[in-house]
Design a protein around this nucleic acid. Structure first.
Lengths: 207, 207
DNA sequence: GTCTATACGGTGATAGAC
DNA sequence: GTCTATCACCGTATAGAC
């Protein structure tokens, strides 16, 4: 079944997939090159052939993760042609539905950023991850025009993001404290997609 | 300056403090026994004399962290003699002001729980960390009596907790995305102490 | 490109003197 | 109780055959 001379990209892809799985689960410090090799069905030496060392391999995984996790956020803060309400609704749905398929992603990113905050700054430059403030500005305008309650837009957006992300990283604690079974969890998440925007609008909208 | 024969407890305490510092910053996998020994001003062998191995030492640190992090939460969910509003207000203030002095605590706990969710279950038993549902029930009653909007109490409490905890674990991302300087961060946190209960009440209260 | 074998430093843990 | 010295192992990384 083995193909000794498959196109190089296939192997590289297998490695990246395996590395993603292991790094996401165990983090940089907990990951073992041997484990990644096993997961990819190759040996350690080949890992070093494609990615010179553990750091390089990790960087590739981290960059991709950062991008995947940030895209919904950036999309929300950017896109000039949607209303505040649309941005918020889209973000909650978009983020929760996307991340739900990779629930370990936020925990991985947050842990690695806290382990080395500098990395975020560097990646922000190279990856062009400068987050535009369109949504913040837009909310500010709505307040000036008297359409919204006079809230601090930054505090509101942080609250929105908190409510979307935290369930993924705090899942075991939440399930235990709120007595939510494994079986109920999906429905609980699904509910949040519509509830979170409602919450935010209650805070933002007058009356 | 050294005291060759100081009371045993002093050394044990120094070790625990050092272990806390290192484990909180680096996590179990990233922590090195040598580093803990240095931080405590002793040598590795003495670590093993007091705590037989790395796991035992870690367990001590983790249990204490879990307790410290959960106490405000449990206090909120329990105390039978306060109103819903008091519980929520007290929690936000209590949690943010407490954790602010150990900002790495939530990240540490969450990472270690996700690394081994089983540990939470075990510690919950031995430490008596069964979280009572007083607040949840109380909100439910308020809804039945028509005093509150018909929200899902669990979703509301999860949102409350999310908004309080997330800033501590997502700080670098938040600061970058919201362009909050180191200097402004404290004020930003301080504001949240009063804002979060206001948000929750907007969702909960009628009109 | 892929493998096996191996070098080499670091890490948790122990032995044993004081 | 505290130290120095040392062990056994594991993990990353490289050498070299195919």
């Amino acid at each position: 079944m083995k193909q000794p001379k498959q196109p190089e990209e296939a192997t590289e892809k297998k490695i990246l997939e395996a590395a993603r799985t292991v790094f996401h689960r165990a983090g940089y410090d907990g990951a073992r090159m041997q484990e990644i090799a096993d997961e990819a069905g190759i040996n350690k030496a080949l890992l070093h052939y494609y990615f010179r060392n553990k750091d390089k391999l990790f960087e590739a995984v981290f960059r991709e993760a950062l991008r995947r996790n940030m895209i919904p956020l950036m999309h929300m803060m950017m896109s000039a042609d949607t209303t505040v309400e649309e941005k918020i609704t889209n973000f909650a749905r978009n983020y929760i539905e996307t991340i739900r398929r990779n629930p370990e992603l936020p925990g991985f990113i947050i842990h690695e950023i806290n382990r080395n905050p500098q990395r975020l700054v560097e990646n922000a430059k190279t990856e062009g991850l400068v987050i535009p403030q369109t949504l913040i500005v837009q909310i500010g305008e709505g307040i000036e025009q008297g359409r919204y309650n006079p809230v601090d837009p930054r505090q509101l957006v942080v609250s929105l993001v908190s409510m979307c992300i935290f369930p993924f990283i705090g899942r075991p604690m939440i399930q235990m404290a709120m007595q939510i079974s494994e079986h109920e969890w999906d429905a609980f998440l699904e509910e949040r997609i519509t509830l979170i925007p409602q919450y935010i609008f209650k805070i933002l909208h007058k009356l």
